[in-house]
């Protein structure tokens, strides 16, 4: 199944078919659009949350169309609730399909999480236990989404704060198995790895060693907040409200030196700074991609596309 928007049969694509380049990209914020369009320096790509563009028209679509005409686009869903016990909401899947048809994005991704139940939408990415039963359900839901969208999607590893007593698999094995069963690709959120590792007392490098890096097609980086757990020890929160932490940059360097350069998104969703500040974070990521990508173990598989 293809993961880029255009197949050879597409007669006249409205937008460029180029894949996400192995460069730094930014989460698109409405307040930045004018500055972005006036900025001469290149940006690898932009990513939007699909749900914010599920309206019929108006200023949000006008802005995103202008961005899509100039940059590769990644559509990142936050509301499909792929881990839900009550199934994928067909109405929401149709709305996602409309966004994907409208913008022909280079990439579509979603989360290993649930966010809706009969009692409504929680606006949070909630955890699932890693069991054979959850695996069946999640893999089935990913396949259902890919069939409807007629393309491959990426699934993102979560950041979590609690564990389930009934989990029987490691998260990395669970994710590897979802990809094997559904054929999906993976989105590796390195900040999520660091947050979960701290919260659950494991080594992030050990997680990364077990993670199927060969299936990763996009990286997410973000800042996290620090709180305390019941024992007074650090509890990290995936807050997306500040610069990327030093430890997360280090892990990013390690990943890139293994995988080669990958499209890398800087997520900054709360307390969003001015565009130049976010732009500076992108430059940091680009510098690492330039420095370590070419010497990677897996080679520049994306640069060759």
């Amino acid at each position: 199944m293809r993961s880029t928007p255009c197949s050879p049969q597409t007669e006249t694509p409205r937008f460029s078919c180029a894949p996400l380049p192995p460069r730094a990209g930014a989460g698109l914020k409405p307040g930045h659009v004018d500055q972005i369009l006036a900025d001469d320096r290149p940006v690898g790509f932009f990513e939007v949350h699909a749900e914010n563009y599920m309206g019929a028209g108006g200023a949000p679509h006008r802005a995103l169309t202008a961005i899509r005409e100039r940059f590769p686009l990644s559509v990142h869903g936050v509301g499909l609730s792929i881990g839900s016990e009550s199934g994928i909401d067909p109405t929401h899947l149709e709305r996602l399909a409309r966004v994907v048809e409208r913008y022909e994005p280079a990439m579509v991704s979603e989360h290993l999480a649930w966010s809706s139940h009969e009692t409504g939408y929680f606006n949070d990415l909630l955890p699932v236990p890693y069991t054979a039963e959850t695996l069946d359900r999640v893999a089935r839901h990913v396949s259902q989404v890919q069939e409807r969208l007629k393309r491959r999607i990426l699934i993102e590893n979560p950041s979590t704060y609690v564990l389930f007593e009934n989990s029987t698999m490691a998260e990395t094995d669970f994710i590897r198995e979802i990809a094997a069963r559904s054929g999906c690709g993976l989105l590796l959120d390195i900040n999520n790895v660091f947050v979960s590792a701290t919260n659950h007392s494991f080594q992030p490098l050990q997680y990364l060693r077990r993670f199927p890096l060969e299936l990763v097609e996009e990286i997410h980086l973000a800042g996290h907040a620090e709180d305390l757990d019941d024992e007074g020890e650090p509890l990290l929160i995936d807050a997306h409200d500040r610069p990327v932490a030093e430890a997360v940059w280090k892990l990013f360097e390690i990943v890139i030196s293994q995988t080669g350069p990958l499209p890398t998104l800087i997520e900054w969703n709360n307390d969003v700074p001015d565009w130049p500040v976010l732009r500076r974070e992108l430059s940091l990521a680009d510098a690492i991609l330039d420095r370590l990508g070419p010497a990677s173990l897996l080679g520049s598989r994306h640069a060759a596309e």
Partner: peptide, 22 residues
């Protein structure tokens, strides 16, 4: 039931992160 934390830690403040975010 079944919500826990590593190394036998309590999960109350951890679960509260989800409660607060929601």
């Amino acid at each position: 039931e079944g919500i826990t934390a590593a190394r036998g830690k309590a999960a109350d403040r951890r679960f509260a992160v989800y409660r607060n975010t929601v």
